[in-house]
């Protein structure tokens, strides 16, 4: 089961290593990870997706809290969040297939950000499902490269 954990940390050298080290040491797998400073540059937010059962996630959160540089941890409820991932997909596209690909891209409200003779680069943001659906449709054309950011998420409404 995938869980999204949002961690506020002090923006200091070595903090990310301490967090990722904790996961490997305790035997948990990180599915994805995104890091960046918050509005307050002294604080960074790390958004982690982990595949673990409920009990393990509780233990992960407790262990994370023990790290001195960790300020706050939230386990995000999938039903009550906006989640996004940004993916760049380089796909084969010649004069015959380009039109079809552009149509698909439009349906998904994705963007074409680079056009070359034999390839296109498509940028899509959205939930993992949306990204996966596009990926499935583009695969027959030949995906040459796929680069994704980790998932980021925000709780809906005024709660934070």
């Amino acid at each position: 089961m995938n869980h999204i954990i949002s961690v506020l940390v002090e923006n200091k050298a070595g903090v990310l290593a301490k967090i990722s080290g904790l996961f490997s040491r305790r035997g948990y797998n990180i599915e994805s990870l995104a890091v960046g400073p918050t509005d307050d540059e002294r604080i960074s937010r790390i958004t982690l997706v982990v595949d673990a059962d409920e009990r393990s996630v509780e233990q992960i959160i407790k262990q994370l809290y023990k790290l001195i540089n960790v300020i706050k941890i939230q386990k995000l409820e999938p039903s009550n969040i906006v989640e996004r991932e940004l993916v760049l997909i380089k796909v084969n596209a010649d004069s015959k297939t380009r039109g079809e690909i552009v149509e698909i891209v439009n349906v998904f409200r994705a963007n074409i950000v680079d056009v070359a003779k034999k390839t296109l680069i498509i940028e899509i943001t959205g939930s993992s499902q949306k990204v996966k659906a596009l990926q499935d449709l583009l695969r027959p054309f030949g995906i040459l490269e796929l680069v994704r950011t980790g998932k980021i998420a925000c709780t809906r409404g005024s709660k934070y």
């Binding site: 070595g14 290593a17 301490k18 080290g21 040491r25 023990k66 001195i68």
Partner: peptide, 16 residues
């Protein structure tokens, strides 16, 4: 050394 002992310490500092 801070990298080496991170898993076996409560905290570490590398003073820069």
């Amino acid at each position: 050394i801070t990298g080496i002992v991170t898993p076996v310490t409560k905290h570490t500092y590398l003073v820069k």
